[in-house]
């Protein structure tokens, strides 16, 4: 039993927490761009581990469910309807067998997550069910979904809210509050110093930490380019390739900074003018082309502190969801 892709949306792929520990072999991390949203979607359908969910970008897919399934939409919420009924986001819904789920465009944000009870049953590649589009690794040979693809569901998952299956869509009466995901622009992102931050011209250094940048159309899961201000080095640097990470801000000769994202390569040779605080990576992942961001300098201690607090809050929320689901069943 599976889900058939009737329309793939703009860029949809299966993603989990990513591929860890393989960078020395040239294999990048990939994984969900907005990890908290991916985890919350899983939690709402009762998944507790590293189950893959469907990540979609700006416009969601249209899917036909061959069997009944429990689903949740988190992150950026597209218009969503099943047989004429609008479907809410940030909660869980029960779809009867044969449902056609039509996801459209999003009013806000850039990436949404569709989780199903039991998770999608893809074979792990190098320990992960994430799609690495750049390297061609993972489900569907590492490519984005296409019309006609079939997403397999875990055949052993006893997927039911409780009681007998209803012929209609059922939404759970409570939902999460998504307001934290949608902030007014420009959003402020914390930037750790990079190897070559102090090699920027003085004017460029103050621009980096004060001015507003716009996300270019040149954006994918690997990187996004920032327009609006050209940054210059005091003098050109001839560098050799070194490790880079998701969140590394590189400055290519064009002078337009590039922020590496979930599918960052493992090495790069451009000057590195900053490292985005890890806690702010999912916030950047929800910005769309044309949105504005600005940076402020932060220390490693501040970044670690915020990351730890953020993780604690997320863990408490995940635990609260699990308790509430257990109480309802």
């Amino acid at each position: 039993m599976s889900i058939e892709v009737l329309k793939p949306g703009l860029l949809s792929s299966l993603q989990d927490g990513g591929r860890t520990g393989q960078a020395a072999l040239g294999v990048g991390h990939a994984g969900a761009m907005d990890v908290p949203a991916w985890r919350l979607a899983n939690a709402l359908v009762g998944n507790t581990g590293d189950e893959a969910a469907l990540e979609f970008t700006l416009i969601g897919p249209t899917l036909r469910f061959e069997r009944a399934a429990t689903i949740a939409l988190c992150g950026a919420i597209p218009t969503a309807e099943v047989d004429g009924h609008a479907l809410p986001g940030w909660t869980r819904c029960r779809l009867p067998a044969g449902s056609v789920l039509r996801l459209g465009g999003m009013a806000q944000g850039c990436r949404g997550y569709l989780a199903v009870g039991g998770g999608f049953a893809a074979t792990p590649v190098l320990g992960s069910r994430s799609t690495d589009l750049h390297a061609g690794l993972g489900p569907f040979g590492g490519r984005a979904l296409r019309e006609g693809d079939r997403l397999e569901l875990d055949p052993h998952h006893a997927d039911s809210l409780h009681g007998t299956p209803q012929p209609q869509v059922q939404a759970q009466p409570w939902s999460l509050d998504p307001r934290a995901w949608f902030e007014p622009e420009p959003i402020a992102l914390a930037l750790l110093p990079g190897t070559h931050t102090d090699r920027l011209e003085a004017a460029s250094q103050s621009m980096l930490h004060g001015q507003t940048f716009r996300l270019s159309k040149d954006a994918n899961r690997t990187a996004c380019r920032l327009d609006g201000h050209r940054l210059d080095l005091q003098q050109p640097l001839e560098l050799i390739s070194e490790a880079v990470l998701p969140g590394t801000v590189q400055l290519p000769p064009s002078g337009q900074p590039i922020v590496l994202l979930a599918e960052a390569p493992v090495t790069g040779g451009y000057p590195r003018i900053g490292q985005l605080a890890a806690v702010d990576l999912p916030r950047l992942a929800q910005r769309r082309p044309g949105d504005t961001v600005c940076f402020h300098a932060c220390t490693l201690e501040e970044a670690q502190q915020r990351l730890a607090e953020h993780r604690d809050r997320l863990e408490r929320l995940l635990a609260a969801i699990a308790r509430r689901l257990a109480a309802a069943s």
Binding site: T20, G21, A23, A24, I240, S241, E242, A243, L245, V266, T267, L300, E301, Q304
Partner: peptide, 26 residues
């Protein structure tokens, strides 16, 4: 996790395993 490049090594670690101690950061 150890990632060699031409002239450098990247070390990825779990900061929770190295909690700040005696004023020394992870």
């Amino acid at each position: 996790e150890i990632v060699p490049a031409y002239a450098s090594l990247l070390l990825r670690f779990d900061p929770a395993q190295w909690p700040a101690r005696e004023g020394r950061s992870p």
